[in-house]
């Protein structure tokens, strides 16, 4: 069976297990909503400035919620030592990385697609601009986040204090994704001409490419027991 089909199989296993219980997705979703509600108390949500910071708000909520999912992604594999079972099977070890990446990417995107309309409603926000571009931003930024996040989750899952460690080592590394996601979202929803924010699409795309390639090369070093 080809490499890609094994990656798909590994992601299928995660999706299947998650959709049976929906534990993680619901926790991520509720957490994202809570972050947005907390923000409403941190400043006056009826002010006009919401327009300019909305892009930042939603990504803070998404990234924080994403941490929950990432912390669980390899923790699940460590239960019953299933990760060893995978490592002992005849798949290339990088397929394990890509399978996890694909699964977490799907979970996060689902959460975002459900949460975003809610955010728009409760902040009375009127986004303009192309929905297609908005979806592109969400996919690209989420991919960058989970690409490096999955990799570092595999690292922290192998240490004591893994749950605390992951956000602390992940956030400094993903600063470019944060900036790119926020600025691109601001551009799209603000209805600005594409030329004004196309740079951020490029930043996200370059970041995604680099931080899929580097983990691909280094993942083996994280797995050895």
């Amino acid at each position: 069976m080809s490499f890609l089909r094994k990656v798909g199989l590994l992601a299928w296993k995660d999706l299947r297990a998650e959709f049976r219980t929906k534990e993680m997705i619901s926790a991520m979703l509720i957490f994202a909503l809570l972050v947005i509600v907390i923000f409403a108390f941190a400043f006056d949500p009826s002010r006009d400035e919401v327009r300019s910071i909305f892009g930042g708000l939603i990504w803070v909520a998404f990234f924080f919620a994403g941490i929950l999912g990432l912390n669980r992604s390899f923790a699940n594999e460590r239960l019953n030592d299933a990760l060893h079972g995978l490592m002992l099977s005849p798949v290339d070890h990088s397929a394990i990385y890509f399978g996890k990446l694909l699964g977490t990417w799907a979970f996060m995107t689902i959460v975002e697609v459900i949460a975003l309309p809610v955010f728009i409603v409760i902040y009375n926000y009127a986004p303009s601009g192309s929905w297609l571009l908005a979806i592109a931003v969400i996919l690209l930024a989420t991919l960058g986040f989970v690409a490096i996040g999955t990799f570092l989750a595999a690292l922290t899952a192998n240490t004591k204090a893994s749950e605390v460690l992951l956000p602390v080592i992940l956030f400094p590394i993903i600063i470019p994704v944060v900036i790119g996601a926020v600025e691109a979202t601001r551009g799209v929803f603000g209805g600005l001409p594409l030329d004004d924010f196309v740079t951020w699409f490029k930043v996200l795309a370059v970041y995604d490419a680099i931080f899929i390639a580097v983990p691909f090369l280094l993942f083996e070093y994280l797995l050895e027991v």
Partner: peptide, 12 residues
């Protein structure tokens, strides 16, 4: 490999 860990996924 048969270990005292099952290598199985509880949710499946």
């Amino acid at each position: 490999v048969i270990s005292h860990h099952s290598y199985l996924y509880d949710a499946l």
